[in-house]
């Protein structure tokens, strides 16, 4: 600790007025909650890639079936069981239209005298798999999104009412939930599908019927947490109506958790649809979904493995992407929340 002072110029010791707000200057522009979350999400590489992949799959699921001239149910037995053939990939030995027959590689296209190329091959009825896979993805995604939407609507309404009104209403509603939650959802889904006319609507209803319970519990918990917080009480003392409190104060605060939960509902619904179709309770022929395609492919697994591989890959990529994006959203929207 030196006591040797340098000679300093006298003006160094001039008192200066420092504006103390200067010290508090905020260097970053102010961002709202969603902008901030978006910035955080963008830093998560896995989530960003998943989002791009999902957007890509959604687009191709919409336009894919129209990219060639085959309809999803155009049958042509003379062109059945063709392996994938994509002309620009063929030189690499992938998707070259060859298949292994009795241990030998055979150009199936030449054998069957087929001139045109089928990018993903054809099934046992000669239907174009490229068209069917994207048509199927379209239907799987549609089922998943609608089921998730129904889940959100019922779940938020039920949980919101239960939490917001509290007291006896909450008591009764929670007892009901407790019993419903005890019923394994697989059982309900299977029973419902046996009774209803098979089809997209039936699957959506069956999945949505059990899916909303989790959402309603989360929403109720959040509403209970927020409704007694000071900002809500303050608004209430100022004479805000119930609807104002719900829509202006509560909903914005629980929005994040609803979004996160929905992100995990969608892949669950995709899985359930595929699962039900696989065990034969889902869509009926000639409709296609990823589940029915996998089921068809499984029957031909030994001879035409691509028939299973392609829809299975699309399904798996969808599931992985949704889960990764869900994880990313959860971290971005609510860093403290765990699974």
């Amino acid at each position: 600790m030196t006591q040797q002072y340098d000679k300093l110029p006298p003006e160094a010791f001039k008192l200066v007025k420092v504006n103390s707000t200067h010290a508090e200057q905020i260097a970053r522009p102010s961002l709202n909650f969603w902008q901030d979350a978006w910035l955080r999400l963008r830093k998560n590489k896995a989530a960003v890639i998943s989002m791009i992949v999902l957007i890509f799959i959604v687009i191709i699921a919409l336009v894919g079936p129209h990219l060639n001239s085959y309809g999803y149910n155009d049958q042509n037995v003379s062109k059945a069981n063709l392996p994938p053939k994509i002309s620009w990939l063929a030189p690499l030995g992938i998707a070259d239209g060859y298949a292994e027959v009795a241990g030998k590689k055979v150009d199936v296209y030449a054998q069957k005298n087929v001139k045109e190329n089928y990018w993903f091959g054809t099934d046992s009825l000669g239907r174009d798999l490229f068209t069917r896979v994207w048509k199927g993805s379209q239907i799987s995604l549609l089922i998943a999104f609608v089921a998730a939407l129904v889940d959100v609507i019922i779940g938020v309404a039920y949980g919101g009412i239960s939490g917001y009104y509290g007291g006896k209403v909450d008591d009764i509603m929670q007892r009901i939930i407790e019993i419903l939650a005890g019923i394994p959802n697989l059982i309900i889904v299977i029973l419902m599908l046996m009774v209803m006319e098979p089809g997209i609507t039936a699957i959506i209803i069956a999945i949505a019927l059990t899916g909303w319970i989790g959402m309603s519990r989360i929403v109720r918990g959040q509403v209970l947490k927020f409704k007694n917080q000071e900002f809500v009480l303050a608004s209430r003392t100022l004479g805000a109506s119930n609807s104002r409190i719900i829509f202006k104060h509560l909903l914005p605060n629980i929005m994040a958790i609803i979004v996160i939960n929905t992100m995990f509902t969608v892949p669950t619904a995709i899985f359930f649809e595929a699962f039900l179709s696989f065990i034969g309770l889902g869509l009926q022929a000639p409709n296609a979904s990823l589940g029915t395609l996998i089921n068809d492919g499984y029957k031909m697994l030994q001879f035409q493995p691509y028939m299973l591989g392609i829809p299975a890959a699309v399904l798996s990529i969808l599931m992985i992407a949704f889960n990764l994006l869900g994880d990313g959203l959860r971290d971005a929207l609510d860093p403290k929340m765990k699974d």
């Binding site: 300093l8 003006e11 160094a12 010791f13 001039k14 008192l15 200066v16 007025k17 420092v18 103390s20 200067h22 010290a23």
Partner: peptide
């Protein structure tokens, strides 16, 4: 502390 101080001098900032 100079930025919050009433007694800041030129040299405090440097």
């Amino acid at each position: 502390f100079a930025l919050r101080s009433e007694y800041a001098m030129q040299i405090d900032l440097e």
